[in-house]
Amino acid sequence: MWPNPAFPLSGVDSKTVAVMAPRFRLFYLLLFAVPLLISCKKEGLPELSSNDGLHPVELLVPANFPAPVEQPDNRLSAEGIELGRQLFYDVRLSGNNRISCASCHRQDLAFSDGLALSNQGFSGKALNRHAPVLFNLAWADQGLFWDGGAKNLESQAFGPLTSEEEMHQDLYELEAELKAIPDYVKQFKQVFNAEIRSADVVKALAQFQRSLISGNSAYDRYIRQETPGSLNAEELQGMKLLREKCSNCHSGALFTDQSFHNNGLDDQFSAENEGIYQGHFRVSFNPADLGKFKTPSLRNVMLTAPYMHDGRFKTLDEVLDHYQNDIKISLTTDVSLFQNQGKPGIPMSKDERKAIIAFLNTLSDHEFITNKKHSATN
């Protein structure tokens, strides 16, 4: 059943629900199969201990955050996180030895890149999707990529590593290159008790990314009643307005429901280019998911322009203009956007918009973007 039966519009043509290209289907089947290839879950997995030469790590979860998602198949260790950090900044992960993960995920921009559609990849061509932020991924439990095409961080990493447009690395060549570096050989042996394998490369990267926790903004200090931790009247009004108008998607301490929504950006969802414009539908093949993309967190939003899955909006004012006046209606447009007496749009006065942006400023975590533990050198 369509999510919006009250709006039986003709925004989706027959091409929209066309069968996906076999090459694309295979790619996503492989992504979802990767966790099985990496390390099948077994009963009674041994706990890490310092007796193995590893130091187990328990994430320092902010008091106002929920518990993170458990990852029994890739337990965190100080050594694994450090290995992942080194790999994250290593250009050898790309086929031309010029591109690292950090090329498109800059710490000073909350691990985004400041570009709408990056052309920094191997091919030099503009990508079809805006580079997502990398923080609070220990709570990502409903799929990664803008369309949810990867089950977890481990399987997700194979996408950019092997993509011709991004890092274009041959995984066998990557293993050979890393095996030529004695320090890496030693580290992989210590962390995974094995020689270097691409499956463990992505596990190390995942450990580092799960350690990227952003939860020390002015808002967090206010919520936790820490010093300094006050918000002014305008910021508090903005917080109230955000909860009233936007919390259907940007909810909870993480300011995302981790789910997928059609936020009215488009009313046509072409099947061209392997369905890149179709959102979660290209993964689920459920027509109810056409045009639905992952809800990004509003944390650090002042640092991560441009906005949306394709980076089409340069400023937050443009984002608010869209939600107030430019919602496009299709069969899957989220019902929470019909706030204008049953019509599409979210009414906001000039002062309300100003207050909302003032509050969004309080979500910037400057300690996170300068933390040396996450940097290229620490």
Score class of each variant (00 low, 15 high):
315 T>P: 02
316 L>A: 06
316 L>H: 08
317 D>Y: 14
318 E>P: 03
318 E>Q: 11
319 V>K: 00
319 V>L: 05
319 V>H: 00
320 L>Y: 02
321 D>W: 00
321 D>S: 11
321 D>K: 08
322 H>G: 02
322 H>K: 12
322 H>S: 05
322 H>M: 05
323 Y>S: 02
324 Q>R: 15
324 Q>W: 02
324 Q>A: 15
325 N>V: 10
325 N>R: 15
325 N>C: 13
325 N>W: 14
326 D>V: 00
326 D>G: 12
326 D>R: 15
327 I>M: 14
327 I>F: 11
329 I>V: 15
329 I>A: 14
329 I>Q: 14
329 I>N: 08
330 S>E: 06
330 S>C: 10
331 L>K: 12
332 T>N: 14
332 T>V: 14
333 T>F: 10
334 D>Q: 04
334 D>M: 02
334 D>N: 10
334 D>H: 06
335 V>R: 03
336 S>F: 01
336 S>Q: 01
337 L>C: 05
337 L>G: 02
338 F>D: 00
338 F>K: 05
338 F>C: 07
338 F>H: 01
340 N>E: 08
341 Q>Y: 12
341 Q>D: 11
342 G>V: 07
342 G>P: 04
342 G>L: 03
342 G>I: 06
343 K>Q: 14
344 P>F: 09
344 P>D: 09
345 G>R: 10
345 G>H: 07
345 G>Y: 09
347 P>G: 09
347 P>Q: 11
347 P>N: 13
347 P>T: 13
348 M>K: 09
348 M>A: 13
349 S>W: 09
349 S>P: 06
350 K>M: 12
350 K>I: 14
351 D>I: 09
352 E>K: 03
353 R>H: 06
353 R>I: 11
353 R>L: 05
353 R>F: 08
354 K>Y: 06
354 K>P: 01
355 A>V: 01
355 A>W: 01
355 A>P: 00
355 A>S: 13
356 I>N: 01
357 I>M: 07
357 I>T: 09
357 I>L: 13
358 A>S: 07
358 A>P: 01
358 A>Y: 03
358 A>H: 03
359 F>I: 07
359 F>C: 04
359 F>E: 02
360 L>I: 05
360 L>M: 07
361 N>M: 02
362 T>A: 12
362 T>R: 05
362 T>V: 09
362 T>P: 02
362 T>C: 10
362 T>H: 06
363 L>F: 04
363 L>W: 03
363 L>D: 04
364 S>V: 14
364 S>E: 08
365 D>L: 10
366 H>M: 14
366 H>F: 14
366 H>R: 15
366 H>D: 09
367 E>Q: 13
367 E>C: 08
367 E>N: 15
